[in-house]
């Protein structure tokens, strides 16, 4: 082992990189965020889709809404129970979910998801 110093330095750097998450988080528990439903959302009781489906599909639903509104000019969404909704993030979704910071952002921040909805849309409560 003529290059002992170099090899040990390399191995040390490798071990530090591989174990990075362990010392970055410094061993403290970091629990998942708890969603807070706004009073308006609690009062409405039902969303446009069942809760599980909304959790899984809201991004695709909104993507579909955007294409429908922008490309086809069609802005009416008919829910499974026949109820009609205006396809609008700011006016329909945020009407009940008035607390963007405690509802949308909590999970998005935790999972490091950066939706580009807010590049164009505003949260009416934050104007």
């Amino acid at each position: 082992m003529k290059d002992k110093g170099k090899i040990i330095a390399g191995v040390a750097i490798f071990a530090a990189l591989v174990s990075f998450p362990f010392w970055y988080n410094t061993g403290t528990a970091k629990p998942a965020p708890e969603l807070i439903l706004a009073p308006e959302a609690k009062a409405a009781v039902t969303c446009i889709l069942p809760k599980d489906q909304m959790a899984k599909e809201h991004m695709q639903l909104l993507d579909g809404w955007r294409n429908s509104v922008v490309r086809e000019g069609q802005r009416v969404y008919v829910a499974e129970d026949g109820k009609k909704y205006d396809m609008s993030l700011s006016n329909t979704c945020l009407e009940c979910h008035t607390n963007k910071a405690d509802f949308c952002d909590k999970c998005h921040d935790y999972a490091a998801v950066n939706p580009y909805c807010w590049d164009c849309h505003v949260n009416p409560k934050e104007k």
Partner: peptide, 23 residues
């Protein structure tokens, strides 16, 4: 499949913080 990413991160963060649990 669009798995629940928050649950996944709960699991992985449990591993990384040495407080493992299954969400």
């Amino acid at each position: 499949l669009r798995v629940d990413v928050v649950a996944v991160k709960e699991l992985t963060m449990g591993l990384a913080t040495l407080h493992p649990s299954i969400p």
